[in-house]
Every structure is written in structure tokens, then in C-alpha cells.
């Protein structure tokens, strides 16, 4: 199991389904992302996350989220989408 656990991308455990669904919604659902930016706690409640997952998500704690079974790419892109709206990052679009 050690070798499997060392993989960067692992099978998403069913126990993390709601967490991954929430990250997916932040990444890909503009309306949900807007609700999350307006009131993260309320948006998380819509997704019925447990207290541990909610706390990790509110802290933006990547390592804790991945340890809970979140997919690293979803953590990465959900965080990027939130930062793009919060920080008004500048881009050169081609």
C-alpha cells in the first residue's frame, strides 16, 4: 500500500464525495462560486460538509483537504478561481 499511497493522484474515497463535490462547484459553477464568495459558511452548509472538512476549506488548507480525500486538482483550481475573483489578478489574454 505504501507505493499506492505515495501517488500524487489517488482514487477519490467515497467519504470525500461531498468535499469533492463542493470543490467542483467552486471550480465550475459560477453561481455557487458567487454564493461562496458572499458567504462561505452558508455555501458550505448547502453542500452538507462535516465540521472537519468545513474548517479545512475555510482555512484553505490544501494539505488537510488532500488528507481528507480531496482531489489535488480540484483543490488547486477551486483555490485559483477564488483568488482570481478576490485579488483581481491581472492576465494577458491571447
Amino acid at each position: 500500500m505504501a507505493a499506492v499511497n505515495a501517488l500524487h493522484y489517488r482514487f477519490p474515497p467515497g467519504s470525500a464525495y461531498r468535499l469533492n463535490r463542493c470543490l467542483f462547484a467552486i471550480k465550475s459553477d459560477d453561481a455557487f462560486r458567487a454564493r461562496f464568495l458572499a458567504d462561505a459558511r452558508a455555501a458550505i452548509d448547502e453542500m452538507e460538509l462535516d465540521d472537519t472538512d468545513s474548517a479545512a476549506l475555510l482555512r484553505g488548507d490544501r494539505d488537510a483537504l488532500v488528507a481528507r480525500g480531496a482531489h489535488p486538482y480540484l483543490v488547486f483550481m477551486a483555490d485559483l478561481r477564488l483568488r482570481m475573483e478576490r485579488e483581481a489578478m491581472t492576465f494577458e489574454d491571447f
Binding site: 489578478m89 491581472t90 492576465f91 489574454d93
Partner: peptide, 9 residues
């Protein structure tokens, strides 16, 4: 790579 389309600093 998305940064090829939309380049951040």
C-alpha cells in the same frame, strides 16, 4: 497549459 492562453504575471 492554460497560462499559454491567459498569462498571469
Amino acid at each position: 497549459t492554460p497560462q499559454l492562453l491567459s498569462r498571469p504575471e
